[in-house]
């Protein structure tokens, strides 16, 4: 890449992050409330309600379930930070045109929006972790833990961006939530171990991106070493959705 292209890429990404930050600040409490309510309820119901006394896979259920809840919080947070607003910007407000008509590359638009969404997801995940720490749960939160979490955020922000640019009506965002995001929230080893699931289904669930995040985070949090396989799989999915998003950005109309 030439110096000028790199500069303009950075300029585009930076501008999108600036704009997203303005809006993030402006809607802080509204966003916080809506992204934190569901995971908090899970935490209370499955974690504190069920989990204090129950032992599970050698740890307390609470310690088992928290990486799962953090994973699903970041998934939901990142996906919805991108899918809904970008879809509205594209189909209703038409503000997405402001990017398309600006002298920034499609790479800058894609990177900027996905990065902004991922940071939003990471913020929700971090808030969640802080809350659990306040409740005195002991997990090994290492930089690698955050790296994994961030990969998960990039992945689902990318998925959200791709969805936002390819679907034909806003109600399809809801469909993505009901049929893809929500099932994954429950089934990808978030609340229970996949060992209790029958063979073929477990195999399918093990391929899904969120499963890699939950098992990977759990491995890191309980000090079992680096989950290379999960990291690789997440990096693969994140790249895949990034490329699909980039292509969608070149092709999107209206």
């Amino acid at each position: 890449m030439s110096k000028a292209t790199t500069l303009s890429l950075w300029n585009g990404v930076q501008t999108i992050l600036w704009q997203e930050y303005l809006l993030f600040e402006r809607r802080f409490w509204r966003n916080m409330a809506s992204t934190m309510v569901t995971p908090l309820l899970y935490l209370i119901a499955f974690g504190f309600g069920l989990g204090r006394g129950i032992r599970f896979e050698g740890t307390s259920y609470l310690e088992f379930v928290i990486p799962g809840i953090v994973a699903l919080t970041t998934m939901n947070g990142s996906f919805n930070a991108v899918a809904t607003p970008v879809n509205i910007a594209r189909m209703y407000d038409k503000t997405f045109e402001e990017y398309l008509t600006a002298p920034i590359s499609m790479l800058a638009i894609t990177s900027g929006r996905i990065l902004a969404g991922a940071l939003r997801g990471l913020f929700s995940g971090t808030m969640m972790l802080v809350l659990t720490l306040l409740f005195g749960v002991h997990l090994k939160i290492t930089p690698l833990f955050f790296l994994m979490l961030f990969l998960n955020c990039l992945l689902f922000a990318g998925f959200g961006f791709w969805a936002a640019l390819t679907i034909q009506s806003h109600s399809d965002v809801t469909k993505f939530n009901s049929f893809v995001i929500n099932p994954m929230s429950f089934l990808c080893g978030t609340f229970f171990s996949l060992q209790s699931i029958p063979g073929p289904l477990a195999l399918f669930l093990k391929i899904l991106p969120l499963t890699h995040t939950t098992t990977g985070l759990r491995a890191i949090a309980s000090g079992q070493g680096v989950p290379w396989w999960n990291l690789t799989a997440l990096a693969f999915f994140a790249s895949l959705f990034f490329l699909l998003s980039l292509r969608a950005c070149y092709q999107v109309e209206d």
């Binding site: 300029n11 501008t15 809006l23 402006r26 809607r27 402001e98």
Partner: peptide, 16 residues
Amino acid sequence: DNELTPRENLDLHGRL
């Protein structure tokens, strides 16, 4: 961008 002010809308454009 309806959520931004005129100044911010112009600023966004200028930055882009």
